Amino acid sequence: MNKVLTGLSVWTMFLFLMGMLFPIQTTNGASSVGMVLQSYTIYGFFSLTPIVFYGSVVSFVSDWLAKRINKYFHLYSFLFHVTAASLVYIVTKNIDVTIMAVLAAIMFFLADRCFFLLSKAPSVMTAHTLKNLPIVLGFVGVTAMVLGSATG
């Protein structure tokens, strides 16, 4: 599976997870649903580039380094993913952003492994679904952002 497409899938999952767990109040008197929808827009705009591009590069490098070690591939890849996400603190000096980056890195690792296992399935339908799932998830994420920006 392409790392950029995995990143797009993770971005959408991250968008929904953060919007539901940590809604941001942007206007006074907004309902709970309104706050969640507006949070989708905010989290979506600020997390798209870091998750899709930085996350894809980090995942590629993590897997490459773990393959070079050649022992405990998944463990080392996971540790490299989390370590690279922890480096966000050096740039931002913000523990909340670092925690969100680590959460996104863990989600990226799990999604990458899940897509890898699905790609090994012998079913033709599974292969077709696997190729289209990240695009559909990306469309769902953008649609959620549009709905969130319209409620305000």
Rank of each mutant, 00 (worst) to 15 (best):
L110S: 05
G29L: 11
D96G: 03
K131M: 13
D63H: 11
G55L: 01
C114G: 04
G34D: 14
T129W: 15
L48G: 00
R68D: 04
K93L: 10
F53N: 00
G55R: 01
L37W: 10
S32C: 01
S149L: 12
S77G: 10
I24R: 09
I90E: 02
P122Q: 13
T6H: 11
F16I: 10
V52Y: 01
V140C: 09
L48A: 07
M107R: 01
F22P: 02
V97D: 00
F139H: 04
G29I: 13
L65V: 15
L15E: 08
L117P: 02
V33S: 09
F116D: 14
F78C: 08
K71V: 09
Y40T: 13
A104E: 03
F14Y: 14
M125R: 12
L147C: 11
L87V: 07
A30D: 13
N94K: 05
N2F: 04
K131A: 15
I24Q: 14
V61D: 03
F78E: 03
Y89L: 09
A85D: 05
H81D: 10
A127I: 02
T151W: 05
H128L: 13
K131S: 12
T151D: 07
G55T: 00
A104G: 07
P23V: 12
K67L: 09
L110D: 03
T6W: 01
P23N: 13
N28W: 05
L133I: 12
P23G: 13
A105K: 01
Y40V: 03
M145N: 02
F53Y: 07
S62C: 05
T98L: 05
S86P: 02
V97I: 13
I99A: 10
D112G: 14
P50R: 08
L5H: 04
G29N: 14
I51L: 01
F139R: 04
S123P: 03
L117N: 11
K131D: 11
V10H: 05
L117Y: 15
N28L: 11
V91I: 13
V33E: 06
K67G: 07
S123R: 11
S119E: 15
D96W: 08
I99V: 14
L110A: 13
S86M: 15
F115C: 04
N28E: 15
I90P: 02
V97H: 00
G55V: 00
F109C: 01
S119H: 15
L137V: 06
M18D: 01
D96I: 09
C114R: 08
I69N: 02
N2V: 05
F16L: 11
T129E: 05
V142T: 06
L17T: 14
T83D: 06
T92F: 01
T83H: 02
L65F: 15
T49Y: 13
P134Q: 12
A111F: 03
A101S: 14
H74F: 10
V82W: 03
I51Y: 00
N132P: 00
T126Q: 07
K3W: 13
F116S: 09
L15M: 08
I106M: 10
L147M: 14
I135T: 09
L21Y: 04
L137C: 08
Q38A: 15
S77A: 15
S123V: 09
A121Q: 12
G152Y: 07
P50K: 08
F14L: 07
F73N: 10
F46W: 03
